[in-house]
Computed example of a mutant assay.
Amino acid sequence: MYSHLSDKEIQAVKLIRNFILHNGRTPSVRELMKGMNYKSPRSASVIFNILEEKAILKKKSDGGFLIVDFDIPEEFGTRAQTVKVPLLGNVACGIPIFADENIEAEISISIEMIKKGYRYFLLRAEGDSMDKAGINNGDLLLIRQQQDAENGDRILALIDDEATVKEYNKSNGMVILKPKSNNKIHQPIILRSDFKIQGIVENVIKI
């Protein structure tokens, strides 16, 4: 797919890819300009347009860009069998997690990590409320979308339109969402039915 790109265009795609991984959004024209050491924002804007014309980037409804194929192989040849999983950017309160405008990229994930019949997505972990469970700030979380959970599952819950990752525990008609953290500021959240389970954290990807 990338054999038709110039070295500069591949460099730009790599820069955009890494920026999305670490910042949860595509770079602005000026941020791409700086990363590419251009002297004019027009040069960066031209790169964006070229990558869109070549179907590497796709413009979203909010004006940002989605990377159509996130992987850039070092050699253009055969690949392991993969499926594309959307990486969702930061979600503002009240905006549905699965809205198209939240998709920042589509990342190829090995089919060995995916269970058939489920929808998956990736989110970036924020904060340290689950560091004792192996989830650190900036990690990518591979989440299997479903609305039920078992005790001990690490779940993505939607509470008052805010998403949070916690350990799920249900007992005596109550649900306790437990943090797993060395930081004592994080406390359990006790609920009944006033929340929604959005999915289960299946894998933590360190970047």
Rank of each mutant, 00 (worst) to 15 (best):
137 N>F: 01
129 S>C: 03
69 D>Q: 15
88 L>F: 06
89 G>E: 00
49 N>Q: 12
200 I>T: 08
199 G>S: 10
153 D>K: 10
158 L>H: 09
47 I>Y: 04
136 N>M: 09
48 F>V: 01
191 L>T: 02
63 G>P: 13
205 I>H: 03
76 F>N: 12
27 P>E: 04
193 S>C: 05
172 N>H: 11
85 V>P: 01
28 S>K: 01
113 M>V: 02
119 R>T: 07
95 I>C: 05
191 L>R: 09
64 G>H: 07
191 L>E: 05
95 I>P: 01
59 K>Y: 01
8 K>L: 14
167 E>Y: 03
173 G>M: 06
125 A>K: 07
122 L>S: 08
204 V>T: 15
58 K>F: 00
196 K>C: 05
36 M>R: 06
56 I>M: 07
135 I>M: 11
118 Y>Q: 02
54 K>N: 10
201 V>L: 14
58 K>E: 05
124 R>K: 15
184 K>Y: 05
100 D>S: 06
152 G>N: 15
104 E>F: 01
197 I>F: 04
149 A>F: 10
74 E>M: 13
134 G>A: 12
165 V>C: 15
21 L>N: 10
190 I>F: 08
51 L>S: 12
36 M>F: 04
207 I>V: 12
60 K>M: 08
183 N>C: 10
118 Y>N: 14
113 M>Y: 13
136 N>E: 11
35 G>T: 02
67 I>R: 04
176 I>Y: 07
73 P>K: 08
186 H>F: 13
152 G>Y: 10
50 I>H: 13
104 E>P: 00
54 K>Y: 09
7 D>W: 06
89 G>N: 03
37 N>D: 10
181 S>K: 06
115 K>N: 05
186 H>W: 14
80 A>H: 06
156 L>C: 13
95 I>M: 11
53 E>T: 11
35 G>Q: 07
77 G>A: 15
71 D>A: 13
128 D>W: 08
157 A>Q: 11
151 N>V: 04
75 E>W: 04
174 M>Q: 14
89 G>M: 01
7 D>Y: 09
79 R>N: 07
144 R>H: 08
135 I>Y: 08
107 I>E: 02
101 E>M: 02
171 S>G: 03
99 A>L: 05
80 A>R: 11
51 L>P: 08
202 E>S: 13
165 V>E: 02
179 P>E: 02
145 Q>M: 11
57 L>T: 03
18 N>E: 14
149 A>V: 10
69 D>W: 07
132 K>L: 10
128 D>C: 12
81 Q>Y: 08
64 G>F: 05
71 D>M: 05
74 E>I: 14
25 R>W: 00
34 K>I: 02
102 N>G: 00
40 S>E: 13
202 E>T: 10
143 I>T: 13
164 T>A: 13
116 K>P: 03
111 I>T: 15
29 V>H: 00
172 N>E: 12
82 T>P: 02
15 L>C: 07
77 G>K: 14
165 V>G: 12
82 T>M: 08
24 G>P: 12
202 E>I: 12
181 S>L: 01
18 N>C: 02
69 D>E: 15
88 L>Y: 12
33 M>Y: 00
110 S>H: 03
197 I>T: 07
14 K>P: 01
163 A>N: 12
29 V>L: 02
183 N>E: 06
199 G>V: 09
130 M>C: 04
32 L>E: 06
13 V>H: 11
133 A>W: 10
125 A>D: 04
